[in-house]
Structure formats: C-alpha cells, structure tokens
Design a protein around this nucleic acid. Sequence first.
DNA 1: GGCTAGTCGTCAT
DNA 2: CGACTAGCC
Length: 319
Amino acid sequence: KTVCVDAYVWLHRGAYACARELCEGVPTRKHVEYFMNRARMLARGKIRAVYVFDGGRLPSKSGEEESRRRGRSEALARAKQHAMQGNASAAYEQYTRAVDVTPEMARQVIDALAKEGFESLTAPYEADAQMAYLAKHGFVDGVITEDSDLIAHGCASVFTKMGADGHGIEIRYGDLARNRDLSFVGFTPEMFLEMCVLSGCDYLPSLNGVGIKKAHGLIRRFKTYTKVLRHMKFEGISVPRDYEARFEDALLTFKFQWVYCPKRQHNVNLNDPTVVLDESTIADLPRLIGAYHAPTVAHALANSAVHPMTLETFGKAVA
DNA sequence: GGCTAGTCGTCAT
DNA sequence: CGACTAGCC
C-alpha cells in the first residue's frame, strides 16, 4: 500500500512548536523534528508514504495572500511588544499568528526525509491537485490530508482527521449518496464541484448569504451553475457583474491545474483540456493556473532542487 | 430553528 | 486549513 500525505498540516503544526524562534530568526530544528516524528510513526504501519509539498502560488490566490501577509506582520509587531514587556505567553500567542511556512522550511524537512529514506514530491503549484492526480492515475492507493477540496478535485477516497495514533476517517465519493445531512442522490462529479464553488472556495468567495446548504439546494434543483445564475437574475437577487466569468475561471482552475506526472517526468494538466476546451480557452489558462514549465524545470521543481516560486537553485545554507 | 460568517487553535509541557 | 460559536434571518 502506498499513500500520499499532504505535508502542509504537519509543516504548520511543527511551526507552532517553535513559532518564536522562526519569527525572530533564531536557528531551530523543532519543526523538522515534529515532522520526522510523525513520518517515523506512519512508517511503522508498513505503509509507503510519499510526502507532497505545495509549490508555487496560483495567480488566482494572490489577493488572499496579500491580506494574510498584512495580518502576520501586524501580529509580529504585537508579539515583539509583549516580549519587550516580559509577557512571554502573550508574545507566543501572537508569534503563532505571525509565523509563516516558507519553501526554505519545506526544503529542510524534505532533506531530513531523504536522509532517512522517505520519499517526497513538490507540486508545481497546489499539493491537493497533485495528490488528486497521483490517486486518479494509480500512483498511490490513498490520500491523507485535512483538505476537503480533494473530493472536489476528483479524488475517489480521502483519509482525513488522522491523529498521532494513526486513526482517522475515510471519506469516499461513492458514499456521498448515503450522506445524512445533505442528499447527493443524482449528483454528478460536475454538480458536486459546482456546489463547492458556489458555496465559496479558494478561487472565488461565495455570494452574500450563500453557504453550503444554499449551494447544495440550488445545484440539486437547477443542476448547473448557469441555470442557478439565471434563476437568481429572474428572482432579482443581486449578483456582481463579473461573478459568472469568475465562476467559470474557478471551475477551470479546479479542473486544469498543473500537476507533475512522475512517469512522464513533466507537468501536465490535472484533466486533459484538449477534448473539452477550445483553443483560445486553453491558451488563456496560464492566467489562472500559472506558467508552463519546461520538462527540466518541472523535474527540478518536483524533486525540490529549485525554489518553487523563483525557480532558482536553493542556496546551500538550508542543507 | 437553521444557516452564515466571523474568531480561534494548530506545539507540548 | 477546520472547529467552534455568536448572531443573523
């Protein structure tokens, strides 16, 4: 059995163990140790794991990233203030809000993993799309993550909420029809994805007052987002002028994100766009999913030889 | 009541 | 990122 593991969660939890040190530039390996302890624990269960790391930022997410950066720098200012006044616990609380997981930290963990014979893979952009690709094409038997978007990305089965003891919950797309809270009888994968976008996703915030329940009800009733929006217009519900175009963009981002194919050793789209999209839409995709990488670059990025954002070789300092 | 939209906690002693 | 919850309709 082979699984892929979303490295994001352990990377963040590890950062909390040494939030002050990371914020103040004090050398520490606690976050690496936290990750390695979890990896060693998983290895004891006779499961082969591939640790998947996030790569470059998607163009569609840059706005969100800017506001988070502001929030972190404000928290860091408050942390320094508390630290100066000798209030260590109040300072720590702010350090945890200020700490950021960097590609350099990911690289430290990847090196530590390699040293003990663990496998890792850096996604060209988002790890969840990469893991969905690995699962869909049989490179792995399962996915371990905390991210619910994996089902929307077309992953048939997801293992989530795994604690230190290795226990967790398996969510299967095929089981959704038996869901108690919301009925997914008659839902296609496309309807499920459109429901996810309608209820608010990474690439598009939801309309005011529309959450998961409303989104589910609307898609169940009208089947497609086009008909949902037509209904809203008919009902006189105010919808931003560009909402439909942005909805289309969000769907394209979900479906055609760049992922790395370990067999062909270059970047491909999560789903093949050539059969369902016209030439001009395909040519427009990089605006949403980011630039195409030449095979040599894609291979170097996937194997963590280059910084996923600058594509420059990592300095020796991180090793 | 149900639902959405904000706030909180993630470590480990 | 999800979990929790105050406060909305």
